[in-house]
């Protein structure tokens, strides 16, 4: 009797564990194959260009809106928290540090995950279930190179650029609030920002951007590629892509911050 209970327990524990390890293996193989195909010809330059446009250019409005309000709210909060000890100089540096190191990368990552990760998973998932990916194979075209390489490369290279733009717009948001709402001197704000700016603030944003871009494109492609069974499967893939990339972005955000600042 006791043996049965133990056996059942192990069995219950075993199956999800085996499935988990299997998924991890599948994903690792997928990553290896995708990276290998990123660095070997042929390259589809035109498709890469379109992905740059889709992921980068068309994401600018959402990135701009989220980062400008992030910068604004940080300025406001810093003022309410620091007003008793010289808020004017504190606002510029708090906005700078929080926007460049954390807010701009994370918001860019999450917004692009929602916008692009979902679209990638839906498009590739639909191509999978309507046999368009098989059709590519029968037309002697490697789906990894044709579909995944342009997306992954665009993700890796475009997200850092978006983060940089987010940095600038976020800091500008802080500037707007402290000058027009709180009535501080604009010249002082700019001088404070420039004095406080360090190379690490930019580097960390670029690193995070590249990693998040890879995560978003990878999750979009992988979940789309693995989708099965029609509309429901594609819907699931889309959800999984967004949820997985959002969670991974937050986890890796912590890890990268840890790598940069604990030495």
């Amino acid at each position: 009797m006791a043996k049965n209970i133990v056996e059942n327990f192990l069995r219950k524990l075993g199956k999800p564990l085996v499935v988990f390890i299997q998924r991890l293996g599948e994903l690792s193989l997928f990553i290896a194959k995708a990276v290998y195909n990123c660095v070997t010809p042929p390259f589809y330059i035109k498709l890469l260009g379109r992905q740059f446009l889709d992921i980068g250019f068309y994401s600018l409005p959402v990135v701009a809106l989220t980062t400008i309000f992030a910068g604004m709210v940080i300025a406001l909060q810093t003022y309410s928290g620091f007003s008793s000890y010289g808020a004017e100089s504190a606002i510029a540096s708090v906005v700078l540090i929080s926007v460049t190191r954390e807010l701009a990368p994370v918001f860019c990552g999450l917004m692009v995950a929602g916008r692009i990760g979902a679209a990638m998973a839906a498009e590739i998932g639909t191509m999978k279930v309507t046999e368009q990916i098989d059709a590519l194979v029968t037309l002697s075209t490697n789906p990894f190179k044709y579909l995944f390489t342009p997306r992954l490369l665009a993700g890796i290279f475009v997200l850092p650029l978006l983060v940089m733009i987010g940095d600038i717009i976020g800091i500008f948001g802080g500037f707007l609030v402290s000058v027009y709402q709180l009535g501080f001197n604009p010249a002082n704000y700019i001088t404070n920002t420039i004095n406080e700016l360090q190379a690490i603030d930019i580097n960390i944003g670029l690193t995070k951007g590249a990693v998040f871009g890879f995560i978003i494109a990878l999750m979009g492609c992988y979940n789309g590629y693995k989708s099965r069974g029609g509309a429901q499967g594609v819907g699931e893939a889309t959800t999984n892509a967004v949820v997985a990339s959002s969670i991974l972005i937050l986890i890796f955000n912590y890890i990268i911050t840890g790598m940069f600042f604990t030495k």
């Binding site: 498009e123 191509m127 309507t130 046999e131 368009q132 098989d134 059709a135 590519l136 194979v137 029968t138 037309l139 002697s140 075209t141």
Partner: peptide, 29 residues
Amino acid sequence: HGKMGMLFQGGALFDSLTVWENVAFGLIE
């Protein structure tokens, strides 16, 4: 694959391309 062609059950046309680009896909790529 260069020797093979396939007519898929659902057509499996690439919906991001026009009709002629679909037909000419193998020729161009």
